[in-house]
Simulated assay, not measured.
Amino acid sequence: MTTPFDPPVPPARPAPARPGRKLGPIAENVGSAHRAWLEPMRETYLKSGMTLSELSVRILFAKSKLSELLRGTGLYPRWEIILSLATELKMPGWPLYRLWRQAAFEAHKTRDWVERCSERTALTTTHTVPPLDHRAFRELMESDYHRYAQVFLDDDQRDTAVSDAFDILWLCWNDALSSPDTRHFAWKILRTTVMSRTPHLDGRPELGWAAFDTVALHALTTEADRMNQVEESLKLFTAMSRLPHRQFDVMVLRRLCGFTPEETSALLGLPLATVRSSERHAIHFLESLLCPPPEPEGNTP
């Protein structure tokens, strides 16, 4: 059962202004695994107050190549340069390496290439322990995160997505602690990670076969009844995919994962009233799609 996790919120500090040309956006063709480590690294750089010129001098890497790296253009970067950059930005090496390695395989790098990139930095690629409060947060949330991810992904993808989400959260843990609600901050990371691996149809997520593992389906005894229930569930899931993100997550957690409103509130980091309101609006929308009111008899030809 999920319980609230509300660390103290230190005052927010504005990012220092920096001279020079503004760093361009991440390239659109950057894959989800690459973005998983690149986005936290960019955010850390942007908050550091350093310029690309300063960073280039510190890590002995050309400014133009550094700009490419932080935009995800050019060749996929070797681990040595990522480690040098992480060291200057004071980012933890172990979760960054795990995410970098996974993205390297997504970029079709061979295992031999990955190992050669890492052989000179063995001490930075061994497992290290995350902060105590991060570990406590993971113990509280991990099993519930798995239940959400299971709705969309198979077992292997589910485990990888949840593990990646906690690695990304580790990279920006200080930001999570300084946010208004650590749970809400973490949920956005989990959702983005799960959805990046979830098949989409017309821009809307498709629920996996695990979503059909419902009480209603198990209660039926004949094959015909079960097929009818599957057809009804398909219509419901298709309609659910049209909900706004918050309402969609509330319905998945409440109706497919079986969480109570209080547990859903704690998982999402949202007020209980917001969860109940989101559920009411979602149900009203689904009913309007699946159970439209009959047309008046006078309109019948």
Score class of each variant (00 low, 15 high):
T2C: 09
T3I: 13
P4R: 15
V9D: 03
P10I: 08
P10T: 13
A15T: 13
A17H: 12
R18L: 02
R18D: 02
K22L: 14
I26H: 05
A27K: 02
E28C: 05
V30F: 02
A36K: 04
A36T: 03
W37C: 10
E39H: 03
M41R: 07
T44I: 09
K47Y: 15
K47V: 05
E54D: 13
S56R: 04
L60Y: 04
A62L: 07
A62F: 03
E68I: 01
E68Y: 11
L70R: 07
L70S: 11
G72F: 04
T73E: 13
G74R: 09
L75D: 10
R78N: 11
A86S: 11
E88L: 12
M91T: 10
G93P: 00
P95A: 03
Y97F: 07
F105S: 03
K109E: 09
R111C: 02
D112P: 00
W113Q: 12
E119V: 12
E119N: 02
R120V: 02
T121D: 13
T121V: 06
L123H: 06
T124Y: 11
P130A: 08
P131V: 05
D133I: 00
D133S: 11
F137R: 13
R138N: 07
E139R: 15
E139F: 07
M141D: 04
M141W: 09
S143K: 10
Y145M: 05
H146Y: 07
A149L: 00
Q150I: 06
V151N: 02
D154M: 08
D164A: 07
D164I: 05
F166T: 12
L169A: 10
L171G: 03
S178Y: 01
D181I: 11
R183A: 14
W187F: 14
I189E: 04
I189C: 06
S196N: 14
H200G: 07
H200C: 02
L201M: 04
D202L: 06
P205F: 09
L207K: 01
L207W: 02
A210R: 02
D213H: 01
D213R: 01
D213V: 00
V215F: 00
A219E: 03
A219C: 04
A219W: 03
T221E: 11
T222R: 06
T222F: 08
E223L: 10
A224R: 12
D225P: 00
R226A: 08
N228Q: 13
N228G: 02
V230L: 03
E231P: 00
E232S: 08
L234M: 01
L236I: 00
L236R: 10
T238H: 06
M240Q: 02
S241P: 03
L243V: 01
L243G: 07
H245E: 00
R254K: 08
R255I: 01
L256E: 06
C257T: 12
F259M: 15
T260A: 13
A266R: 11
A266L: 03
A266T: 12
L267K: 12
L267D: 11
L270M: 13
L270R: 15
L272T: 14
L272V: 13
T274V: 13
T274A: 15
V275A: 13
R276G: 14
S277M: 07
S278M: 05
S288A: 06
S288W: 01
L289N: 01
P292V: 09
P292K: 14
P294N: 10
N299Y: 10
N299E: 11
T300F: 11
